[in-house]
Computed example of a mutant assay.
Amino acid sequence: MTSPTPSTVSSSPVSIRAGPGTRWGAAPDRLNRHLRELGIDPASDDWIDNAIPAVLALTGRISGVVVTPAHVERPVLGAALFR
């Protein structure tokens, strides 16, 4: 697989619009088995309309930590540190 072109992937991490077939790195096919088990064709460049459930399921498979939509929807704790 070739590296993505600028039209495929933006330099901003929040505006990446690439299908499951757009992968790169040292082991771009490492997650293919997990993608297939989730019903996603790793060779497809089709856009997934609501990828959040698939991303949460893939995250759970990779990390062993089950992340549910409730985890994402709850309030985020944070702090502002001033010097």
Results as ranks from 00 to 15, higher is better:
T68P: 03
A18E: 03
V14N: 07
W47Q: 12
T2D: 10
G39Y: 01
I48M: 07
V9Q: 01
I52M: 15
P4F: 01
L56E: 03
T68L: 15
I48T: 10
G21H: 04
R74P: 00
I52D: 05
A54T: 05
R61H: 01
L77D: 11
S12V: 01
R33E: 13
R36K: 13
S10M: 01
T59I: 05
M1K: 08
R17M: 04
A27F: 08
H34M: 11
S3L: 12
G78S: 14
V9W: 00
I48N: 02
L58D: 04
P4A: 10
L81F: 12
L56R: 11
D46L: 14
A18L: 08
S44Y: 01
S15D: 14
G25A: 08
A54K: 12
T22A: 12
S44E: 07
F82Y: 13
I62A: 10
R17F: 02
D29A: 11
S7C: 00
S44V: 09
D45S: 14
T68K: 09
H34W: 07
R30A: 15
L77M: 09
G21V: 11
V66Y: 02
A54G: 06
A54C: 09
L81S: 09
S12A: 09
P20K: 05
V9H: 01
D41S: 05
S3I: 00
P42A: 08
S10K: 09
W47M: 14
E37M: 12
M1E: 07
V55F: 09
V67W: 14
A80P: 00
P42W: 08
W24S: 15
P20V: 10
M1A: 10
E73Q: 14
T68H: 12
P28K: 11
S7V: 03
R36H: 02
E37S: 15
P13W: 05
R36Q: 08
V55R: 04
P4R: 08
W24T: 15
S44G: 08
G78V: 03
G25W: 06
I48W: 01
I62L: 14
A70F: 06
G39T: 04
V65L: 14
D49V: 15
A18W: 01
S63H: 04
V66S: 09
P42Q: 11
L35N: 03
S15N: 11
L56V: 04
P6N: 01
S12Y: 07
A43G: 15
A51I: 12
P42E: 11
A43Q: 15
W47A: 15
R17K: 11
P4C: 02
L38P: 03
V14Y: 13
R74A: 15
F82G: 05
R36D: 00
D29F: 02
A43P: 00
V65M: 13
V66I: 09
P53W: 10
A80R: 14
V72K: 06
P75D: 13
R30M: 06
R61M: 06
G78R: 06
G39R: 04
